[in-house]
Design a protein around this nucleic acid. Structure first.
Length: 595
RNA sequence: GCUGGAAUAGCUCAGUCGGUAGAGCACUUCACUCGUAAUGAAGGGGUCGUCAGUUCAAGUCUGAUUUCCAGCUCCA
């Protein structure tokens, strides 16, 4: 594919850039179509994205309907058919400003003002449409063969909520219709594994308007999964010397004023409750509670590290637009822990936390994740505790530990917590944007605020360092992730229903209920389908709705010989074995948490 | 919170020009007694998210509101 750069040089597009150029050029064609249909439209940014492109446009008071979007797409196809040549030109800064000013492109004009003095300001033109852009682009509009407008949304000018909200029109673009069709198929599959959909199908959790938005409730099956996750992670933590505590979901406002959270995150907490002259809030996190537990008695350096863990209920007043099933609600349970350590224990403790994270990921088969070292933005003195030395020490320490451990990570400025830098491990769910699953934060700040102490070997009072960490993140979010990873086909130990017992007819119901009872006695989560239905019907439901890892098909043959016919969820194969043999197999898989 | 879209039976959805509310699945009952992804028949089930308005008449039109969805902003 031939492309053209801003100097007008035409050349063959490198393979790896083809999609990007196509998407960027498609954004221009969409803008041209919008300009034809809405001459008053004023364009802001219109870049290529991971899957396509968007253009942010100021349409004044005009609201776009789905029909309008279809019209824009139709106009785009027309422009492609017209096969307009796409030509670049370069203007000196003042002429560029004048051109944009004359064309009433106030966003582009402002954009030029933001560019450095020596910037080369280039434009691309196709037909009447001119866009300020550094390119490169395809040479003719007919090069764009497969695109689709996927929707619209609001987006702030320069991503700042203080600015005007523009209309963002999103689209996807590919090199061929086949690729576009493939993408649409993939999107459909992604929607099918959405945890909200599967959660409903499997009766894992529910929401209700009367309970309140962002407050999902776990049903018996969902809570079974939840409890298994809780037991799993607590077991791991106990082996690593964590001590678990239970602390209340409410605390005084003073507690959060002491920690600094009140100043930083008041807006994201449920408002304070006044009782008997005192103010209380639902807690948004557990650090202060754990700090007070540490402060409950004096500590010797010999006791450190002290690792305090809790599966803790937290409440955050998340913006209504960000709520998403159990992935992000206003109530959730953190797999939280605070490690109180001496400075020379930082490295080994961070290292153990990192090991635990990857150990857990291995158990769950999580392979697609990204490690980020989140640092402060030194310019943001409002968010970040202004103590350069403290920050430099903490950031250098954490960076060095991560390097020593040898994990790959990228650094992101301005992503740190207000009290310290952190390692975030991010994953991408089937549906929606990447989010943080695990985190390990290094904190020199809160221990000082709470005046925490330990006595060192020379009888001096010292301030411990705190590591905040969450491995499963929140159990709710982790469950959402696992549902989407497995499409609800949980490993045996996590499955809410592990075995479904299916008599072929009522003649073998008695034998089936004996088998069911034997499984129950072995602590296997089992259910007997005693309905008067055909075996194919029962299998279908057990497999498609319950997603039971094992189905036991029990007919005359099995009853006679005292065996069970095992049908496997994951490969649809069947195998006969003795009941005792099956129980041993299943209970072993459960005990070892086999994947 | 913001921009746009949606809301009809437990679930998935149809409902034309404003004229008494529909299907499949699920559920109940009956028959069949069944061998590896849906046996047949009958029956019950809806203030069409909520509140106003327009109209002789509203699931359908208007407004407000609630919740959900896509995205933006945010995420200690």
């Amino acid at each position: 594919m031939k492309i053209i750069d801003k100097e007008g040089k035409v050349y063959e597009c490198p393979e790896e850039e083809v999609l990007h150029v196509i998407r960027h050029s498609t954004a221009h064609v969409m803008a041209q179509a919008i300009q034809r249909l809405y001459p008053e439209a004023d364009f802001a940014y219109g870049p290529a994205t991971e899957r396509g492109f968007y253009y942010d446009v100021d349409l004044g008071d005009k609201k776009l309907s789905d029909e309008d979007l279809a019209n824009i797409e139709a106009e785009m196809k027309k422009i492609v058919k017209e096969n307009l040549p796409i030509k670049p030109f370069i203007l000196p800064r003042d002429e560029a400003v004048k051109l944009m000013h004359d064309r009433k492109e106030k966003y582009k004009e402002e954009h030029i003002g933001d560019l450095p003095e020596d910037a080369v300001i280039s434009f691309y033109q196709q037909g009447d449409y001119i866009d300020m852009c550094i390119g490169p682009h395809v040479t003719y509009t007919k090069a764009l063969k497969a695109f689709k407008i996927t929707g619209q949304s609001g987006a702030y000018w320069k991503n700042d909520a203080k600015n005007k909200m523009l209309t963002r029109i999103n689209g996807v673009a590919f090199t061929s219709q086949e690729e576009l069709a493939e993408y649409e198929k993939m999107m459909e599959e992604a929607r099918a594994r959405d945890h909200r959909k599967i959660g409903k199908e499997m009766s894992l959790f529910m929401t209700d308007d009367l309970i309140g938005k962002g407050l999902p409730m776990f049903l018996p099956k969902g809570y079974t999964v939840w409890q298994e996750l809780e037991n799993y992670i607590k077991e791991k933590e106990r082996k690593l010397g964590y001590q678990h505590v239970m602390t209340p979901c409410v605390g005084t406002v003073s507690l959060y004023e002491t920690s600094g959270h009140w100043a930083h995150y008041k807006a994201n907490m449920f408002p304070a409750m006044e009782v008997e002259g005192e103010s209380f809030v639902l807690r948004p996190m557990n650090c202060p509670h754990h700090m007070m537990i540490y402060a409950n008695k004096p500590h010797s350096y010999k006791e450190l590290p002290i690792r305090i863990g809790e599966i803790a209920h937290d409440f955050r007043f998340e913006s209504s637009g960000t709520l998403k099933g159990i992935e992000r609600g206003r109530h959730f349970c953190q797999n939280d822990a605070h490690l109180f350590v001496t400075p020379d224990q930082i490295k080994s403790e961070v290292s153990k936390v990192v090991d635990l994270i990857f150990d857990v990921y291995k158990d769950f088969g999580i392979e697609n994740y990204r490690c980020v070292l989140s640092l402060r933005d030194p310019a943001d003195t409002e968010k970040y505790h202004p103590d350069d030395e403290m920050w430099n020490t903490a950031e250098d320490a954490l960076r060095q530990v991560l390097r020593d451990i040898g994990i790959e990570f990228t650094e992101e400025i301005g992503e740190a917590a207000f009290y310290g830098p952190k390692l975030d491990v991010n994953v991408k769910p089937a549906v929606g944007a990447e989010y943080t699953l695990s985190t390990c934060q290094l904190d020199f700040c809160l221990p000082a605020k709470f005046d925490l102490k330990y006595i060192d070997s020379e009888s001096n009072e010292k301030t411990p360092v705190v590591l905040h960490r969450a491995i499963l993140g929140s159990l709710d979010r982790f469950m959402a992730f696992i549902i989407e990873e497995t499409k609800g086909k949980f490993p045996v130990w996590l499955a809410p229903l592990q075995v479904k017992v299916l008599p072929v007819s009522e003649k073998t119901l008695e034998y089936a209920s004996k088998v069911n009872e034997a499984l129950e006695n072995a602590n296997v989560r089992t259910q007997l389908d005693d309905r008067n239905e055909k075996i194919g019907y029962k299998i279908r439901e057990a497999q498609q709705v319950d997603r039971a890892p094992y189905m036991l098909i029990l007919g005359a043959k099995e009853a006679e010989e005292g065996i069970v016919s095992v049908r496997y969820r994951d490969n649809n194969e069947t195998e006969s074995m003795k009941l005792e043999e099956f129980i041993e197999k299943v209970t072993k898989e459960i005990a070892t948490r086999a994947r």
